[in-house]
Simulated scan of single mutants.
Amino acid sequence: MVENKLKITLLSAIAIALNIVLGIITSSFKLPFYLDVIGTIFIAVYFGPWYGAAVGGITNIITGMIFNPKDIPFLIVNVMVGLIVGFVAKKFKFNLVVAIVTGIILSIVCPLIGTPIGIWVYGGLTGTGMDFLFLWLKQSGSNIFVASFIPKIINNLLDKIGSCILVYLLIKSLPKQYKPFKLR
C-alpha cells in the first residue's frame, strides 16, 4: 500500500514537472500548441480522473507561483483535462481511436473554458504564434470571444489530439508490467 502511494506520488511529481517544462519550452518558442497537459493526461489514464485533476491543478498553481500569478485561473482547464481523460480511460481502453476522440473532445471543452479566462486575464491573446489570428479577427470586426476562441480551437486541435496520441504511444511502449491494468 505504501509502495503504491509512493509510486503515485513520484509519477505525479514527474508529470507536474513535465507539464511545466513542456509549457515553458512551447511558450518560449511561441509554438501554436502548448504541450502543458501531457503529464495530466498520463496520470489521468494511469491512475484515474482525480489524480489527473490534482496533477493539472497543482501544475497551474506552481507555474502561477513561479512565473505569473495570472496563470493560476487556468487550473480550471487543466483540472477538466484530468477529469475528462480519467473518466474516459476508466470507461474505455485508451487505444489510438479513444486517444484521438478524447483529444477532439478536449479541443472543444478546453477553449470553451479557457477563452473567457484568457479574455479576463490576457485580453484574449494566447501567447502563441496564433496571436496574429486573434488580432486579425478582432480588427476584422469579430467580437472578442470569437476572435479569441478560433485561435484557441486551432491551438487545441494540435495540442490536445497530439498530447493524447503521445500519451497513448508512451503507455503502449511501456513493458507490460508497468502498464495500467486495463491496458495490459
Rank of each mutant, 00 (worst) to 15 (best):
S173A: 05
V77I: 00
K152Y: 10
T128S: 01
I76H: 11
V79L: 04
V167R: 00
D71T: 15
G124A: 11
F145Y: 08
I153M: 09
G86D: 11
A53G: 11
F149H: 03
L174M: 13
C110R: 10
D36P: 00
P49G: 11
G57F: 07
T128F: 01
I113K: 02
G39C: 11
Q139I: 13
G141K: 08
I150V: 15
F145M: 09
P49W: 12
T128W: 01
G52W: 14
F87S: 05
I72F: 09
D71N: 13
A147P: 03
Y168M: 10
G118N: 13
A54C: 13
I113R: 02
I154R: 02
I84C: 10
I104T: 10
Y46D: 04
L135E: 14
V109C: 11
F42P: 02
N143S: 02
L170I: 12
L112N: 03
V101L: 11
L75Q: 04
I108C: 04
D71I: 15
K93G: 05
V101G: 03
V146E: 06
L106Y: 01
A44N: 15
G162V: 13
N156L: 05
G141H: 10
I117S: 07
Y46S: 07
A89K: 01
M130N: 07
F149E: 06
L135I: 15
I62T: 05
F47W: 14
G48R: 15
N78Y: 00
S148N: 06
V98R: 02
I113M: 12
K172E: 15
P175I: 09
W50R: 14
T40S: 03
I38E: 10
I165L: 12
S140A: 15
I100T: 10
K138P: 13
S107P: 01
F132E: 12
G124D: 13
I144K: 01
G162N: 13
G52D: 14
V167P: 00
I171D: 14
L137W: 02
K91M: 11
I61A: 08
P73G: 04
Y34N: 00
K93T: 11
S148H: 06
A53P: 07
T128N: 03
I104N: 02
F92D: 06
K138F: 15
D131M: 03
Y168L: 10
L75V: 06
V109L: 12
K160W: 08
L137Q: 02
I161F: 03
N155Q: 15
I154M: 04
T63M: 05
N78H: 00
G57D: 13
F132H: 03
I119S: 02
L83P: 11
M130F: 13
L135M: 15
N68C: 05
K160Y: 07
N156C: 07
N78M: 01
L166Q: 01
T102W: 00
L137D: 03
Y46H: 05
G86F: 06
L106F: 00
I153E: 04
I38A: 07
D159G: 02
G123T: 09
F87Y: 10
L83T: 11
K90I: 10
V88H: 04
M80N: 08
L83M: 12
I117N: 07
C164Y: 07
S163P: 09
I105D: 08
K70H: 10
